[in-house]
Amino acid sequence: MIGPKVYETVADMRQAVDAARAAGERVALVPTMGALHEGHLSLVRAAREHAGHVIVSIFVNPTQFAPTEDFDAYPRDSEADLKLLAGLGVEGVFMPPATEIYPPGFATVVSVGGPAEGLESATRPHFFGGVATVVTKLLLAALPDVAIFGEKDYQQLCVIRRFVRDLDIPVEILGGPTVREEDGLAMSSRNRYLGTEARRTAALVPQVLNEAIERIDAGEEASTVLAEGTARLTQGGFAVDYLELRDAETLAPVDAQSARARVLVAAKLGQTRLIDNMSLARPANGWR
């Protein structure tokens, strides 16, 4: 099996993008932090539907981790990642060293507001500045026609869409649906941290989300439903950061059923922090 070409520098990736465009191909970028799973691979397949040349970036971004978070322990397996991407026929993989993204003397950050305010920012105030800066760099480095991000990280997707519009970055941003395990748990690289018992307990997160949406759809008071969902997660052993109903585009708080609403959750089980979200609109597969 012939694997994708690996680029460690922006210059090499740009050269590949220029060649693809000269051949008349559209270019798609799928930014990741590696430790790839089926959720990531679904984004790569979606990218293929929009472009003839697909590049996946693999970079564990240090600026979105606080000193107390799991940067050093974050799962990394580049050999396995490259095998998976080769199986999907990916043309290129951008795997830069940290000094390529943040060279000596680097002194610029992208500051974001709007959908970045609240939720994740309440407990991780550093997070979206780090995400916005690295994604801006990736988009400007490759200038793809389209970039694909997962809806599991829904607030992140909203933030990226906002700053791409605000900064006039000429890239179409698309979201890929959350891919779930059989019990509904959203696929995540951090699920590897969960032991057997914790993995069973983790399924409570999508259960609470799904039940909360069913009750809100049925006309129950959202604040009561969410308070009871929070209590249920807490009783299950989670430390809950938030369980909230928000506007699907702006992420402003809403207090009633809306076609534009989503319920978002972040909760820690032991040392593993799980995030998820579901829409009030139910798709055919039953999970939102």
Results as ranks from 00 to 15, higher is better:
222 A>F: 08
158 C>N: 09
212 A>V: 11
85 L>F: 14
152 K>M: 00
270 G>M: 11
42 S>N: 10
149 F>H: 03
123 T>A: 15
186 A>P: 01
148 I>S: 01
196 T>D: 14
261 A>W: 13
91 E>D: 15
197 E>Q: 13
133 T>Y: 12
48 R>D: 01
113 G>C: 05
21 R>N: 10
49 E>A: 15
168 D>K: 12
156 Q>M: 08
75 P>K: 07
287 W>E: 00
23 A>N: 15
14 R>E: 12
102 Y>M: 06
184 G>K: 00
257 Q>C: 08
180 R>W: 01
232 R>S: 09
10 V>D: 04
183 D>R: 03
90 V>T: 11
132 A>I: 11
249 E>P: 00
90 V>I: 10
206 P>R: 01
200 R>Y: 01
176 G>I: 01
43 L>K: 00
244 E>A: 15
54 V>M: 05
248 A>K: 08
211 E>F: 07
185 L>E: 03
209 L>R: 09
122 A>D: 15
197 E>W: 00
69 E>S: 10
269 L>Y: 03
116 A>N: 11
190 R>P: 02
47 A>N: 05
247 D>H: 15
26 R>P: 04
200 R>T: 08
176 G>A: 11
144 P>V: 02
176 G>W: 00
79 E>G: 04
222 A>I: 10
121 S>R: 14
22 A>C: 06
120 E>G: 05
73 A>K: 14
114 G>H: 13
239 A>E: 15
153 D>M: 08
109 V>F: 14
154 Y>V: 01
